[in-house]
């Protein structure tokens, strides 16, 4: 085989392992703020993802070992698990993960071929199909009197006999849900934000979670596993869009800081929108991709039918990737100052 004959030490496995590692602070904060239920969700999603991946590889005639070892299925599983309500029933987790791995990943051609982010496809399918179950968020421990233990969480997830009263005591709407419901009931943002669930910025517990994901994301950035373009543009898109709306009518639109630290934004910015396979590849394209996803997130949150918009925003931007890439081809060495988009 011809040159080059030496390789850098990087590998897909290494990249994915770093992504998983960077999620650990977030998971730790999750456990601390919302109880250990997430661990059950993560484990269930991981097992399902690996089994589905192995089965699909076998069905498609690929060798299983190198593809299972690349850890990409686990990354998908974790991202989906962290986006789901932490007390979601087991079948919801399994359905979402299966859909993500089997349909969104393998039916599109497997690793590197999927045009949509698999975790977000799984999430979107679930929220469209099972909106009620998708709101079963564990309440922040700060706000509950009787937090669930690991065993109790597992019991809830696996549909054990949990009295409805107990369940109501430990679940709660997310801040975004609360904001949405409040606005529908003609309250102003300030009135809604006075509820205890809204902490300083993005909701009790959620803001710490966001901070932990931000930390993990910064580690990925420092290691050059993710570029700065997508997260920065994504956050800027959210901040500017929300800020613009808030500036004109603070009573009807949430504050930009709230939108930034609300659930799923930091996770989306550093771990989901940065998915290289389904994202834009050119430097300018990454900026457009990130900003567009941020903008759409706020738009969907504000006017859409669902409380959160990160998943739909990213999926919509995934659709635009070929177009974005084609029209943002960078200038090459020795190229003309102004690049013309190559004709299709």
């Amino acid at each position: 085989m011809p040159s080059p004959f030496i390789l850098d030490r990087s590998s897909v496995t290494q990249v994915m392992a770093w992504v998983l590692a960077a999620l650990l602070p977030g998971i730790a904060v999750y456990v601390w703020a919302f109880g250990p239920g997430i661990l059950v969700t993560l484990a269930l999603a991981t097992v399902t993802a690996l089994a589905a991946e192995a089965a699909m590889l076998k069905a498609r005639g690929y060798p299983a070992k190198p593809f299972l070892a690349d850890l990409s299925a686990i990354v998908t599983a974790w991202l989906l698990a962290l986006s789901l309500p932490s007390l979601a029933p087991w079948w919801l987790i399994v359905t979402g993960t299966l859909f993500a791995i089997v349909v969104a990943k393998h039916l599109y051609g497997g690793l590197g071929q999927n045009i949509f982010n698999p975790a977000m496809v799984g999430y979107a399918v679930l929220i469209v199909s099972f909106p009620a179950q998708m709101t079963q968020w564990a309440a922040p421990l700060e706000l509950t009197s009787a937090p669930l233990t690991l065993a109790q969480s597992a019991a809830v997830i696996f549909g054990g006999d949990v009295p409805k009263a107990t369940l109501d005591a430990v679940t709660m709407a997310t801040p975004l849900d609360a904001l949405r419901t409040g606005l529908l009931q003609q309250h102003t943002v300030d009135e809604i934000m006075a509820q205890p669930i809204f902490g300083h910025y993005g909701g009790v517990g959620f803001e710490w979670l966001a901070a932990a994901f931000l930390l993990g994301g910064l580690v990925l950035w420092a290691l050059r596993i993710v570029g700065w373009q997508v997260p920065l543009a994504f956050l800027a898109g959210i901040w500017l869009t929300a800020g613009f709306l808030h500036f004109f009518d603070a009573g009807r639109f949430g504050a930009p800081w709230f939108h930034l630290f609300a659930p799923s934004v930091m996770l989306g910015a550093f771990f989901i929108a940065t998915d290289p396979v389904s994202g834009a590849t050119t430097p300018r394209g990454k900026l457009i991709f990130g900003f567009g996803a941020g903008f759409l997130t706020v738009v969907i949150r504000t006017w859409g039918g669902y409380p959160d918009g990160v998943a739909f925003a990213i999926l919509l931007m995934n659709l635009c990737v070929p177009l974005i890439d084609q029209y943002t081809q960078p200038r090459i060495y020795g190229g003309a100052k102004k690049t013309k988009a190559p004709s299709a």
Partner: peptide, 15 residues
């Protein structure tokens, strides 16, 4: 050299 995996479009090559 290790066996090749599919491209994941990470753009390290572009960098």
């Amino acid at each position: 050299l290790p066996k090749a995996l599919p491209c994941i479009r990470c753009t390290r090559c572009a960098d």
